[in-house]
Simulated assay, not measured.
Amino acid sequence: MSDEVLVERRGAVQIITLNRPEAKNALNSAVAEGIAAAIDELDEDDELRVGVLTGAGGTFCSGMDLKAFLRGESPVVPGRGLGGLTLRPPRKPLIGAVEGWAVAGGFELLLACDMVVASATAHLGVPEVKRALVAGAGAALLLTQRIPQAIALELLLTGDPISAERAATLGLVNRVTAEGHALDEAVALASTIAANGPLAVAITKDIARNASDWTATERWDKQAELMEPVFTSEDAREGASAFAEKRPPVWKGR
């Protein structure tokens, strides 16, 4: 892991920090590969339950590093997408914690997250059209699925950013905090999720994320197929036992 992406643990929560504050945490190849490696660690380590993605220096991410791009670098990891994330998000929940600006590719990283916590002074947007580009790392494809089409088109076609409060009203942001507190609030949210059964959390995310791609005739069967290992797991028995015995559960992830 390079110094351009920092990874730490707070209990069962992994914190991934984009660490190029001098470049507004713009995405270059090192950052993309660092995020991809961190996501692999999140999914492979049973002690980690939830990830939080944030940026250093009061900015989340300003998008692709155009200077690095001109040098021939790519912020896309093959098979993983922009920032090593947009095409293949983690199996476990990922929360974006936003201070300052999350624009262009930085905004598209947030669309790959499952939840977003932003400070009141944060701004989000997709200014690609202002540079004669297309928001091709997820915004043009996904934004109309997340918010009303007319509003999504306004954001995509004007390129103008919106405030965290406006983003929360639209449903793009879960929680708005005072400036400087987005990471702490995101970790608190992640810790609440991490206290739940890890198998159930991962499968619930899988169903919720993918159900829209299933036809009406197949969705119940697909859900049942995914759920069956959860209901026959040791954790399911532990959850029932802990409830009956009025004690905290001890999850094993199996």
Rank of each mutant, 00 (worst) to 15 (best):
D3G: 09
W220R: 14
A202Y: 09
G138K: 13
D43F: 00
S62H: 06
T217D: 14
K24H: 14
L110A: 02
W220Y: 12
A122Y: 07
I35Y: 00
S233R: 12
D40N: 13
A164C: 13
D3M: 05
V116T: 09
D213V: 08
A195V: 15
R49W: 09
G55R: 08
K92A: 13
S191N: 03
R80F: 05
R166T: 15
E47N: 07
L172I: 05
L157Y: 04
T59E: 15
A216H: 15
V13Y: 11
A102Y: 00
I16F: 06
P161E: 09
A202S: 15
A30N: 03
L66P: 00
P21A: 08
S74Q: 01
V134F: 05
A182G: 01
L82R: 03
L142G: 09
L87K: 08
G105S: 06
H181D: 09
L66I: 13
L109R: 04
G100T: 03
T217Q: 13
A164F: 12
A118N: 13
L226Y: 12
L157W: 04
P93R: 04
L141A: 10
A97F: 00
N28R: 05
D43P: 03
R237A: 06
I16Y: 11
L85T: 06
P249T: 06
G83R: 02
H123G: 02
L82E: 09
E22Q: 13
V7I: 06
L155S: 07
A190Y: 02
L156P: 11
A194F: 12
S119V: 01
T86I: 03
A150M: 09
A150Q: 15
V13E: 08
A242E: 10
I151M: 15
D45R: 15
A178C: 02
K24W: 10
R247P: 07
L42I: 02
L70M: 14
G171C: 08
A190T: 04
L226G: 06
V98D: 04
E44T: 02
S163D: 12
E73V: 01
L199I: 07
T121W: 08
V129A: 04
S241M: 10
S2V: 02
I147Q: 15
L141V: 07
A135L: 08
L143E: 11
R9Y: 01
E225W: 01
C61Y: 08
R49M: 12
L170D: 05
D160M: 10
S74G: 01
W214N: 13
P90T: 06
G100A: 05
E73C: 03
S29I: 02
N174Y: 12
S241I: 10
A178D: 12
F69Q: 13
V76K: 06
T169E: 15
A36V: 07
Q14D: 01
I207M: 07
A167S: 10
F231A: 06
A112P: 13
A186V: 04
V7M: 02
L189W: 12
E22V: 11
A182S: 02
